[in-house]
Design a binder for these strands. Structure first.
Lengths: 127, 127
DNA sequence: CAGCATCCTGCGTGATACTG
DNA sequence: CAGTATCACGCAGGATGCTG
């Protein structure tokens, strides 16, 4: 899958959206940033707390997610050029406008996603 | 500002959501089903139309996406046991309740996603 | 028509170690 | 503290051919 030239139509904004938030942590990063700027380490610790404590998010992965979010125009990176290093991430206006979307996703998830993985393959036909 | 005490159980529904709609076509399949049941081939052709015509979605992939959606409780599979085969897919109640979420995503995408990939790495700081 | 079987590849993700 | 470098692996996703 090399190039995705911007095809128009209805499905594409959705696909662009999916690309934008692809990855395990991007949505959660955005959500964690909704209350204000956070430093790199704070984001990292927040992610560890949120999921399972056994999960270790490596700096490589987090760095990549953050870069992608910056490239996608959802967050900004502010580098205080000091020692020891201090970098803050905060939402752009686009990022802020995305928060309600995440909120809707969360609410939907909490209502319809109660242990979907458990019953996964059988008798889900609540119809 | 950073009142992050609510970050515990919050991330999980989002991750479940991401798992549920992971894959290139799931959201678009759901969206295409919003107006009523569709047959396998209709879904397939709909996906071809929406994206780039050059893209070929293989039966293997589509089959997998559909199974995952069924397992996730978002769609139902109705197999008319006839020859030639006829299978219809339609949304469950959960799937229907998911449509507004997709709609919100679409609207957000159309407003904030105008060619993000193009400007990607530079001067996105619309802030 | 609506899939399944098999093979193959790129990328996202994790582990580990190192740096300014 | 906030990353980068390197290695490795699983898996989504495509190509192709076959089937009930």
């Amino acid at each position: 899958m090399a190039n995705r030239k911007s095809a128009k139509g209805d499905g594409c904004p959705v696909m662009a959206f999916q690309k934008l938030i692809s990855g395990k942590y991007k949505i959660r990063i955005l959500w964690d940033l909704k209350d204000g700027p956070l430093r790199y380490g704070e984001i990292r610790r927040g992610l560890l707390r949120g999921g399972d404590a056994s999960e270790e998010i490596t700096p490589r992965v987090l760095s990549r997610e953050l870069k992608a979010l910056v490239a996608g125009g959802l967050i900004l990176r502010k580098d205080f050029a000091v020692v020891p290093p201090k970098v803050e991430y905060r939402l752009t206006r686009s990022g802020q406008s995305f928060i309600p979307v995440i909120d809707m996703i969360r609410k939907w998830g909490m209502r319809h996603l109660r242990g979907v993985e458990e019953r996964s393959a059988f008798s889900v036909a609540a119809e």
